[in-house]
Design a protein around this nucleic acid. Structure first.
Lengths: 122, 122
DNA sequence: TTGACATGAAACCAAATGGTTTTATATAAT
DNA sequence: ATTATATAAAACCATTTGGTTTCATGTCAA
């Protein structure tokens, strides 16, 4: 599963369903590893490695408290995802016709593609 | 690289930087495989497989035109990502107002992009 | 018709991924 | 002091991933 260095970014981190579920659990509240593990049909070690990946992406942060390591959500890196997504929103939002007249009067090739998607049926 | 069936979802599809760049290229305009390949330091076969993954996630769609296969962006599955993200927004929005402003200004930029597209190519 | 072009398909490969088991160590509870 | 708890670290493993090379096929152009 690796672990070394800066290898994992937020896109990779959320690609795995188990890790997304871990994030959801930590969104509710901070939890120690063993408590997180209890929600999955796999070993604590496996979950610990998932937490490492999430930690490299800085989506979670764990602190030692006594013999437990308590993880909490750190959602900030998701802003990168949001910004990435925002670029693509125009490609589906216009289908709600807000930009429809702009698209139809444009000579722009890219926007013509969008326009043809609306009428076409090839 | 696999290919069989419904194996790839949108989260996995966008996890790879090459595939994100492919999406960006297709956001500009539809393109045949060879044209996409020209933007990368890898073989056409590799790009073709990336396109398969994107196709399984229904983020792109390719049609045969003559001897070319022309791919175009299909952004709809990204709404799933947006929905997933929206759940986490409340965890940072009232927490870091500076980041909030950055995100908002990037939305402004998106609108400016659309606006400039109307005149850019003419 | 003969190439050149664009893609498809298959076999192959190294590295990464997602898991396991085993062993060790620190802390808590009795 | 002893034992149970919580985690860490390492070795191991099968499958997937991201790439390659090679060969086959369909289409356009001269």
């Amino acid at each position: 599963m690796s672990s070394s260095a800066q290898k994992h970014d937020v896109f990779q981190a959320i690609a795995d369903p188990t890790r997304r579920e871990v994030l959801r659990l930590l969104a509710e509240k901070e939890r120690p590893i063993s408590e997180i593990t209890a929600h999955f049909p796999m070993s604590r070690t496996a979950i610990a490695k998932h937490l490492q990946v999430l930690s490299e992406a800085e989506l979670v942060h764990g602190i030692k408290v006594g013999r437990e390591k308590i993880y909490r959500l750190q959602p900030e890196p998701l802003t990168e995802l949001k910004q990435w997504l925002s670029f693509y929103e125009k490609f589906w939002e216009n289908k709600l016709s807000i930009l429809k007249h702009i698209v139809e009067s444009s000579e722009d090739q890219r926007l013509q593609v969008i326009k043809s998607e609306q009428t076409d049926k090839n």
